[in-house]
């Protein structure tokens, strides 16, 4: 299969090199300091708690590397959605 891929692909190993570099560098550059990650965490909590109660002790955040992309994945357990948030926001806009 790889052999066929190589045979029929329009570009050589260069495009693989570029793709791999782009992905590895997202990961390298995402190697952010614990302080920055903590700030991000606090900011996210502040925004999300406007809409719902969450279990802040169980938040998991990490960079997830798939084959062709890097995702920032946050797992945030929800305790309760606040009632009337959507209505309140509608009211603000109006």
């Amino acid at each position: 299969m790889d052999f066929l891929k190589k045979f029929f692909s329009s570009s050589g190993s260069k495009s693989r090199a570029k793709e791999r570099l782009q992905i590895v560098l997202i990961h390298d550059r995402a190697d952010i300091s614990p302080e920055m990650l903590d700030n991000l965490r606090q900011d996210m909590i502040a925004v999300i708690t406007r809409y719902m109660d969450i279990d802040t002790s169980k938040i998991e955040m990490d960079f997830d590397r798939a084959d062709r992309s890097v995702a920032f994945v946050a797992n945030i357990p929800v305790i309760r959605i606040k009632r009337g948030v959507a209505a309140a926001r509608e009211g603000e806009r109006g």
């Binding site: 329009s10 570009s11 050589g12 260069k14 090199a17 570029k18 570099l21 782009q22 560098l25």
Partner: peptide
């Protein structure tokens, strides 16, 4: 090698 698509070109390195 660049012409053969087997080496990163200058523009690729600059992109990155």
């Amino acid at each position: 090698m660049v012409r053969d698509g087997e080496m990163l070109d200058v523009s690729d390195v600059l992109d990155i």
